[in-house]
């Protein structure tokens, strides 16, 4: 192992994390199934997917809590499947934070340094500095039980970052926080990641969180990566029906409907905000009946039901609130959109 590591290309050229056909099977269950992946150093990477899609298992494979059934994992070029978690230069922020209940906050944050034999004074200095980074200065003497959920989250972050990991793993880091705190932490996490330049890999089932925070997103389902790309790409050009459906609230258009407009017999996706309303009989769009109206502040979300000759589709349209005034349930309108707005997907028709 040491021989191959020394003959490997210089670390700067290697991706931070590489998966080569990695699988993790539990009996007949394929939690992770032949995943290939390369994450660049300094990247903020999101693993997005519904529960049971394999994203958390991938994170645990990187951390070293699980071993792959097949394939190889590399960290900065070095093969790590056989290394225990404590020899990987990777730290984790756990979903339940996993703070040590018998230690105070300063000791919690300094734990990793203590394990590496850093002397007490230096340990306290570094831990205090890390607490300042997560905006909890002066909390060192408290016990984890005396902190709120949001504060514990910050301590967990400080405890991981104080070790200066090459890769930081975050397992649903914001899942247990309420909405306001979550939005605040999203911004702070991003700011911390940018200022430290550390590779962040985080797992979430919240597509909004993934799209707003990450440089790139991998969408998981059934142990496989269905699409990897920048948030705009994932959102605007989903490759499969699953991705379109899971990321944002896209309208799925069946092959018949798409063929009529684009000539291609393929599944298509259409974002709600790309649909405009026209009066019935204007001939500019597909005739549809208004089935639901939800006022969302700046926009209004409309449920539309196209006429039977248009496939009786349920479409969702997001229109400016002003454009939706005076609409009544059951009223006939036309749903208009540019044919180019339809994104064609790779699924078999």
């Amino acid at each position: 192992m040491t021989a191959s590591a020394s003959s490997a290309p210089p670390p700067a050229l290697s991706p931070a994390v590489t998966f080569e056909a990695v699988s993790r099977h539990y009996g007949a269950v394929r939690a992770v199934d032949g995943v290939d992946l390369a994450i660049a150093p300094g990247e903020f990477f999101a693993m997005l997917g519904p529960s049971g899609s394999g994203k958390t298992t991938c994170l645990r494979l990187i951390a070293g809590f699980e071993r792959p059934s097949a394939g190889h994992i590399r960290l900065f070029g070095e093969q790590v499947e056989d290394l225990p978690p404590y020899r990987r230069g990777v730290n984790t922020v756990f979903q339940d934070y996993a703070l040590f209940p018998h230690l105070d906050i300063l000791e919690n944050v300094g734990f990793g340094l203590k394990m590496r034999g850093v002397e007490a004074a230096e340990r306290r200095r570094a831990a205090a500095e890390a607490l300042e980074l997560v905006k909890l200065p002066g909390y060192g003497a408290r016990k984890p039980g005396q902190l709120s959920g949001g504060q514990r989250q910050r301590v967990a972050l400080a405890r991981a970052l104080v070790n200066k990991p090459k890769v930081l793993l975050l397992d649903e880091p914001l899942g247990a926080l309420d909405l306001k705190l979550r939005e605040q932490m999203q911004e702070e996490l991003k700011a911390i990641q940018k200022s430290l330049g550390v590779t962040f890999i985080f797992v979430t089932h919240d597509q909004g969180e993934a799209l707003s925070m990450a440089d790139r997103v991998a969408v998981f389902s059934e142990g496989k990566i269905r699409q990897i790309g920048a948030p705009e790409e994932i959102y605007n050009r989903p490759r499969t029906r699953f991705v379109a459906d899971f990321v944002g609230s896209s309208n799925l258009l069946p092959p018949d409907f798409v063929e009529k407009r684009l000539g291609a017999r393929r599944w298509g996706s259409l974002r709600p905000e790309q649909i405009a309303l026209r009066p019935a009989g204007s001939g500019e769009g597909a005739p549809a009946r208004i089935a639901s109206v939800s006022y969302l502040g700046a926009t209004t979300r409309l449920g539309l039901e196209t006429a039977p000759e248009e496939g009786a589709l349920r479409l969702h349209a997001a229109v400016p609130a002003a454009a939706a005034t005076g609409l009544a349930l059951g009223q006939m309108v036309e749903a208009a959109f540019a044919p180019e707005a339809i994104h064609l997907m790779e699924d078999a028709p």
């Binding site: 809590f65 978690p85 990777v90 996993a98 040590f100 734990f111 990793g112 394990m115």
Partner: peptide
């Protein structure tokens, strides 16, 4: 569960995890 994993993650080998956690 995660406490033992946290110890391992932070660099504790089996003996250290037992001794300190």
């Amino acid at each position: 569960g995660s406490l033992m994993e946290a110890a391992a993650d932070l660099g504790a080998d089996g003996f250290q995890a037992f001794r300190y956690v």
